[in-house]
């Protein structure tokens, strides 16, 4: 097929058009609407002119918004750190110590829990950690006092989220470890470095792109999680998504809710860009 650049471009655009039109109408337009609403004057359930930045000054002036943003950020970063630290040795084990033909079986085992009903898993934690629940009753049966972990809302939110998004972290780290040239490791050890030093100086830097990708993949859904704070945290410790719901649906304050959504999107965006830039350093360094 002797395609000229022009006809190739036309064919490509024609082919992608159904999907492109769908996402433009149903994703780009709604996101733009949120952006516009966030600078409009609002009442209950409607928006009107004039344009204003009041919604943003309101966000800045009330400390509860900043508190929820900061809390969500800290919870998500803690969960991300725990998840990645726990996932690294697992990915390392599968990549370096499992026979090649068994690797996909191990990965399959690790991913199964992720694909089983998220809502059931989170709700189960509610039963596991709750007052008089599975943990407490198990402790009682061996004569220990109850922990009642669920009463520590933030702690239980962190436990549940770290569990829910764990498999997300293993896969990217595994993929980057698989790419590490094994002969480099032999070279390091031939030149007299210990296995630990070889790991720190060769394997770890080479696998950093996977680590950062894993961090990003865990961070984004965690920071926007709705179900866990609502159910496990008993709604006492709302995070970003819960506040957006309150603003947009319960109070029907579209402009204020939109402004908060825009600010949280910006925050997620900034953290993601930091991760990506950090990643670039390693990709640049390894080539």
């Amino acid at each position: 097929m002797a395609a000229t650049p022009g006809s190739e471009a036309r064919a490509g655009l024609k082919l992608i058009s159904p999907t492109a039109i769908y996402v433009i109408l149903l994703l780009a337009v709604p996101l733009a609407t949120v952006l516009i609403y966030s600078v409009m004057t609002g009442g209950r359930g409607n928006v009107s002119l004039p344009l204003t930045i009041e919604n943003y000054t309101e966000l800045a002036s009330k400390s509860v918004y900043g508190y929820i943003l900061l809390k969500s950020l800290l919870v998500a970063l803690t969960v991300t750190a725990i998840t990645v630290l726990l996932a690294y040795p697992v990915a390392y084990f599968v990549s370096f110590h499992v026979k090649p033909e068994r690797k996909s079986l191990w990965l399959f085992l690790i991913t199964i829990p992720f694909w089983t009903s998220y809502i059931i898993r989170v709700s189960l934690w509610f039963v596991i950690l709750g007052y008089g629940g599975i943990v407490d009753s198990a402790l009682a049966s061996i004569g220990l006092p109850p922990l009642n972990i669920a009463s520590y809302s933030i702690l239980s939110i962190i436990i549940v989220l770290a569990h829910a998004y764990a498999p997300f972290a293993v896969l990217p780290i595994f993929v980057s470890l698989e790419k590490v040239d094994r002969s480099l490791l032999e070279a390091g050890q031939d030149l007299g470095e210990s296995r630990w030093v070889t790991f720190l100086r060769v394997t770890l830097p080479l696998s950093m792109p996977g680590v950062i990708a894993a961090a990003l993949i865990v961070f984004i859904p965690t920071v926007g999680d709705y179900v866990t704070p609502e159910l496990v945290g008993d709604g006492k410790e709302p995070m970003i998504a819960n506040l957006i719901e309150t603003q947009l649906l319960k109070l029907q304050n579209f402009p204020q809710g939109s402004a908060f959504a825009v600010v949280s999107m910006l925050m997620v965006g900034i953290v993601s860009v930091v991760f990506v830039l950090w990643n670039r350093r390693y990709i640049g360094g390894s080539k």
Binding site: A20, V23, L27, L216, V223, Y226, I244, L248, L249, S272
Partner: peptide, 19 residues
Amino acid sequence: LIMLPLVLPEMIVAMALLV
């Protein structure tokens, strides 16, 4: 744009569409 929902909190996608 097509892959954007992967890196956007789901709540934002839902709320934007809902509004």
